[in-house]
Computed example of a mutant assay.
Amino acid sequence: MHKNKILQYFYIFRFKLFKTSTKMSEGALKEKELGNAAYKKKDFDNAILHYSKAIELDPTNLIFHTNLAAVYFEMKKYDESIEECKKAVDVGREQRADFKLIAKAYNRMGTAHRKKGELELAKTAYEKALTEHRTPDYRQNLSEVESAIKKAAEEAYINPEIAEQEKQKGNDCFKKGEFADAVKFYSEAVKRNPRDAKIYSNRAACYTKLTAFDLALKDCDKSIELDPSFVKAYLRKGNALKVMGQTQKAMDVYEKAMEIDPNNAEAKQGYKDCAVKQYSTGGGSSDPEEVRKRAMNDPEVQAIMADPAMRMILEQMQSDPQAVSEHLKNPEIMRKIMKLKDSGLISMQYR
């Protein structure tokens, strides 16, 4: 109880000091208002004159310094703005000013440093603002400058020549079957050159070998994002999906690879392997008539079934199931057959 009483007296004492320290003289208040009016009109020279006069009349009030700092900031005189913020903090400390006002000075100081590109100094100022008074805006400012510092560090680390050296080390490890070590080198190469699609694709191959399929797919997607025409990334994504047992998704990826490079043997073989697996596992529906009706509403299915050549092929496949293997050598016929299979219209197995 005694302790609480002491704290109560302390806060009352501090409040009285604060009221005294922030009370403006009539002349200083008038100059401040004239400075505010000039500031709103962007008449910065007169704003400086009035705020400076207010400081002369009342050197104990930090608000005049923070206002003056705001003028210099708008004039892009960031050094002068920072100096006024420092003076505001010093005056505020001497006069035991409200911590919110000191926090505002630190925040403004941080923004001026940020404009100058002095990110570390900006970070320090924002941190000090938060120690005085925590607000979402101050927290956001700190978060943004921390992100900018991280990005700057990453950009400074980029070196394509070193990236190529690290990639080669990864290639050497991959050839030896040392996949975990290869991942380390490829990861360093990515940091050194995050815009090289081939590095992500190479690392994806390692992840597949290590059965880290989620990471492999993520790297394949990044590689494709960086270079949508890079066939190798599609092939490695298809291979990962095939190993994962996601046959249809793998076929879709192999098909995309064949669109980019129609003569790619690996894409054709991957697609064929998946197609054979699809047929060997069979299919069907508990309600064939319903499936058939739904499928025939698909314009693409209608076109396939209306094609005389495709009808002949389907009839041949019914009388000679072994003919499936021969027809799958043609990517376009394979695609149409798989479309019918996916729609539920056909369900065939090798015997």
Score class of each variant (00 low, 15 high):
Asn141Ser: 10
Met334Leu: 06
Glu259Arg: 09
Gly117Val: 10
Arg139Cys: 09
Gln302Ile: 13
Glu83His: 13
Thr66Ile: 11
Asn67Thr: 08
Arg14Tyr: 07
Lys115Arg: 15
Asp196Trp: 02
Tyr11Trp: 08
Ala54Phe: 08
Asn36Phe: 00
Ile12Met: 06
Tyr350Asp: 07
Glu266Trp: 04
Ala70Leu: 03
Pro136Gly: 09
Ala205Phe: 14
Ser343Cys: 08
Ile6Trp: 02
Asn264Phe: 03
Lys176Arg: 10
Asp181Arg: 10
Leu121Pro: 08
Tyr51Glu: 10
Phe10Gly: 03
Phe18Trp: 09
Asp45Ala: 11
Ala129Cys: 11
Ala275Lys: 01
Asp79Ala: 13
Glu300Arg: 14
Ser285Asp: 12
Pro228Glu: 04
Gln95Thr: 12
Glu161Ile: 12
Ala212Trp: 00
Ala323Val: 07
Met296Val: 14
Asn264Ser: 05
Gly284Asp: 14
Gln302His: 14
Tyr126Arg: 05
Ile12Asn: 09
Glu332Leu: 02
Glu300Asp: 15
Asn263Trp: 04
Pro228Arg: 02
Asp79Pro: 03
Pro59Ile: 11
Asp307Asn: 09
Leu241Thr: 01
Gly35Tyr: 01
Lys191Glu: 11
Leu142Trp: 03
Lys104Met: 15
Leu241Tyr: 00
Met310Gln: 14
Asp219Ala: 00
Lys198Ile: 07
Thr247Gln: 13
Pro321Arg: 02
Thr131His: 12
Met310Lys: 12
Pro136His: 12
Tyr138Arg: 13
Ser229Asn: 06
Gln302Ser: 15
His133Val: 01
Asn4Val: 09
Glu332Ser: 06
Gln278Thr: 14
Ala148Lys: 15
Asn67Lys: 06
Asp307Arg: 06
Phe18Arg: 11
Gln302Lys: 15
Glu289Lys: 15
